[in-house]
Design a protein around this nucleic acid. Structure first.
Lengths: 211, 211
DNA sequence: TGCTCACTCGACACTGTGTCGAATAATTTC
DNA sequence: GAAATTATTCGACACAGTGTCGAGTGAGCA
């Protein structure tokens, strides 16, 4: 694999190969709106990008590699929303948790097809699995850390369950709800309901119920 | 599709076809321990069952149909654990919820490969999707119903979120945790931790924190 | 005995994958 | 700016898997 992704805004002139790779990625993202990754044939990718099928293998090792590249574009945004809860200021927990969850939901709405494909592919592709376990690790870690801070401050309900175990199920719950939410028709009302429900469960699980 | 699944314990003599279908199902369940459904080729199924590849299509329409038959065998057990919470007696909620969740985890431990394959296939196969949305419906419905009972009795935290929305995220959380749990090595300690954590989240989400 | 029906098989046409070597375009070197 | 090098593209090929068809085979039954 000699292809190296150009950072956005790089001054380096785009070579022809970069353009082709980009075209493949764009085609892939578009096709994922309709079908799952393994229903997409290589020649759909390449004819969408205006090249012959065998040229695909010059740019990517496999369809999974395409997905991996696609995921990296998207996942950066996820970290931002994850960081939102961590280091909340004097703001009440409800606000920062809601904001974090809301950001995650919005990202899934924007890139649902890619994220769903990536989630599915972690059972199949070693690269994607490693990639996602890293993502999950960061989420769980920063959540657990925050739970511990709140517990030490006497604000959160003490364990068991351990901060880490609790963080794991909460993060996993968010992911699975975002996954299925992104399958349905876009609906602001439904989005809001899911955000509120998830927020309520996070609050109750971590802080208990006020009053 | 002329094949009809024999109810267990039926007195009807097993025809040769039943035996072959059964052999295919057994082979499939065994292969699913190692690979995902779409990595399993039809001739692996049939050579495992000692017949030629094309004979497969006499018994099943597709690999998905095999999975569907396999799921039905397994899912009956799920309903039992779901029913456990509903209609708890005078028993404290913690007990009945823990027992229900524990039963679900045990079932996923026993039949993880089949259940995982079924979950994955709902994005692909129409039949499987319908099948699972029915399963999920039953779970969510009975959970929501129980939440409402507890709310009316003044024991549970009142909404919002609505009983139904709350039930949806809790059920989905359980499923996604069972899925990933069943991917790891079997460990009684880990199982117990997950059951305890899920139970804690259910309790806090529905009833709030005691004391 | 001959009929029927459940069941099995091999052959075939088709779709998609991944690799190879040759051809061409772009870039660098002198 | 010609030659050498490197990047990119292509068509052809070998291979693997799918699903269908028509022709068997054999067990039970009229």
């Amino acid at each position: 694999m000699m292809f190296v992704m150009n950072r956005a805004g790089s001054r380096r002139r785009r070579s022809k190969g970069d353009l082709t790779s980009q075209a493949i990625l764009d085609t892939a993202e578009q096709l994922l709106e309709t079908k799952s990754l393994d229903e997409i044939a290589v020649d759909e990718l390449t004819s969408g990008a205006g090249i012959s099928r065998s040229t695909f293998y010059f740019h990517f090792e496999s369809r999974e590699a395409v997905l991996h590249a696609l995921s990296e574009r998207v996942v950066e945004g996820l970290y931002d929303s994850a960081a939102l809860w961590l280091r909340r200021g004097s703001e009440p927990p409800a606000e920062s948790i809601r904001r974090a969850i809301s950001g995650t939901v919005a990202l899934w709405r924007a890139h649902g097809p890619v994220l769903r494909a990536a989630v599915r592919a972690r059972d199949t592709s070693e690269v994607v699995r490693g990639f996602w376990s890293e993502v999950a690790r960061k989420f769980v870690e920063s959540t657990a850390q925050q739970i511990e801070i709140e517990r030490d401050a006497g604000v959160a309900v003490p364990g068991p369950p351990s901060a880490r175990a609790l963080a794991t199920v909460l993060v996993s719950m968010n992911e699975s709800m975002c996954y299925s939410l992104s399958l349905g028709r876009k609906s602001a009302a439904r989005d809001r309901e899911v955000v509120e429900t998830l927020t309520a469960v996070w609050l109750r699980a971590v802080y208990g119920v006020p009053q």
